[in-house]
Amino acid sequence: MSKIRITKQFSFETGHALFGYDGKCKNVHGHSYKLSVTVIGNPITDNSNVKFGMVIDFTDLKKIVKEEIVDQFDHATVFNKNTPHIELANELKSRGHDVILVEYQPTSENMVIDFAKRIQDRLPKTIELHSLKLQETETSFAEWYASDNL
């Protein structure tokens, strides 16, 4: 049976700041992120299965990514919890803003690593996460490949 890759794309708006950075991104700002999620597996061959012919139902993949990433990160601001931005984070939270505190510098590179773990933990055992592409701007993106992380 042939392995097939399928991809679903998502978009969300997220703010962040890079503490200690030597450029403009040290300031709180936001991006219109685009996330492409590619999984790999064998299409279901049991013709009595309602998912016959599918690697995974796009609706099932959408549910996982929405719950783990889009619903949490959309219109939230992400800060490293071990930086002085914690004071700003607490102020924003006290005013009803969605703030996510993470263990890492919230770069696209680190976010895509975090997203890969979140998605992998939720996929059925028969499906493998192949790659993620997190696009921060029209010309800048970070990619994660399972084959690079064995």
Rank of each mutant, 00 (worst) to 15 (best):
K117D: 15
Q120S: 12
D114A: 02
E87V: 09
L134I: 06
E143F: 02
E136W: 05
I40M: 10
I4C: 09
D22R: 06
Q120P: 05
N90P: 04
P106V: 03
E128M: 12
K3Q: 07
T83E: 12
N47S: 14
L61G: 01
I69H: 00
P106M: 01
V99Y: 01
I127D: 02
K125S: 07
I69D: 00
E13N: 09
N80Y: 04
K117F: 15
I64P: 03
A146E: 06
A146N: 06
F73N: 00
H16S: 01
K63I: 06
I113Y: 05
A142E: 05
V112A: 13
V70Y: 02
A89H: 03
I113T: 10
G41D: 10
F141P: 00
E138A: 08
T14P: 12
M1N: 10
A89W: 00
Q105G: 01
V28F: 12
I100P: 01
D98Q: 15
N149S: 15
E67I: 04
T38V: 09
E91N: 10
E136G: 05
M1W: 14
K62W: 13
N149C: 13
N49M: 07
G53M: 07
Y21H: 13
T139N: 13
V37C: 01
I4W: 14
H31C: 06
V70M: 09
S2D: 13
P124L: 06
T38R: 05
V37E: 00
Y145V: 14
K133M: 06
T126P: 14
N80M: 07
S36M: 04
H75I: 07
L35D: 02
L18F: 03
N149D: 12
Q105F: 02
F19I: 08
W144D: 02
S131W: 07
C25L: 13
T38M: 03
M111H: 00
F58K: 13
G53P: 09
G23E: 13
A17F: 01
E68C: 11
A142T: 11
Y21W: 10
K26C: 08
F58C: 11
A116Q: 05
V112G: 02
V65G: 02
E136I: 03
A116Y: 04
I44N: 10
I119V: 11
H130F: 15
E87R: 10
